[in-house]
Design a protein around this nucleic acid. Structure first.
Lengths: 149, 149
DNA sequence: TATAATTCCTATTGGATTAATAGGAATTAA
DNA sequence: TTAATTCCTATTAATCCAATAGGAATTATA
């Protein structure tokens, strides 16, 4: 399961992508709209800023805005930032690789082989899930549900 | 990431599948071979037994053995038993479904749509990963590494 | 029947992580 | 100068993780 922090981060990013405004959006506006505890969101946005996805303006009329374009920010990056590895086992992670201490021979481990496949597939899907892609999905879902009624 | 408990459980199950012996295997033998803390493994095997994957014999010459056949036990079951949902968001879990409290409209959520795809693909792969399949993968990996040298 | 070896069961523990909250410093527009 | 904002550090309560402790119950066998 993703932590709330990660979920909140994704929601905040999608919100900013949806806004499309050049003007910075205030933390409290995002917090209210996305139902995220204000102070918690503050810390999350700071992390996203330090990671180069967002930028901010301080002081009165300050706030946050996307630094990269919505098709350059993907969910894989965001998950890695807050959760660490995407892989389910450390021995199949790329960026956060670590040997399993209890493992006898990594090269011929069938368990590792399974979770390597899972990792590759997941990373692929999450890399394709850019903010633009998510907005597109939303539009499709909205059309589908409109048709149905 | 999977917890150590889940990893240990999978290792113990694969070990028992590899053994193929009808006679029960003692906890301490599995613990030693798979490098799992003995007492911790005890609790894990109990859980696997209560879940119907293993059975045990008590007393002297007691131990654990597979109750189901190795192609009837898959990793999806094991992960669900120890981790709960396989899904990365509660709102796309099947067995452990829960609404995301902060979500405004689940039906048209693009984020949910992404993680539903990830869940489906992961569950598929983990269901296909039976103990038999894992042993088969091991054999393939061993052949590959033998050829190379 | 006594004994040794095993599983079964409950409780406890230290440490890490999660999800927040608190308070105030720094910055900036008006 | 003031009001509104972001920035930054510290703290907290609750939960979960990984493991350990101790002994009861069970069973083969000498």
């Amino acid at each position: 399961m993703l932590s709330k922090k990660t979920k909140y981060a994704i929601n905040a990013l999608v919100y900013l992508a949806r806004e499309q405004s050049k003007a910075p959006v205030q933390i409290s506006k995002i917090a209210e709209s996305e139902r995220i505890p204000r102070k918690f969101l503050e810390a999350i946005l700071l992390d996203l800023r330090n990671a180069g996805m967002l930028s901010s303006r301080k002081g009165k009329t300050g706030g946050y805005y996307l630094l990269k374009s919505p098709d350059e920010i993907n969910i894989a990056e965001v998950v890695r930032l807050f959760e660490g590895a995407i892989a389910l086992l450390p021995c199949v992670a790329h960026k956060y690789y670590e040997r399993c201490e209890e493992c006898k021979n990594e090269e011929v481990c069938g368990i590792r082989d399974v979770f390597a496949d899972v990792r590759n597939e997941t990373v692929n899907m999450l890399k394709n899930a850019t903010l633009s892609n998510i907005l597109e999905r939303e539009r499709t879902l909205e059309n589908d549900s409109a048709e149905k009624s």
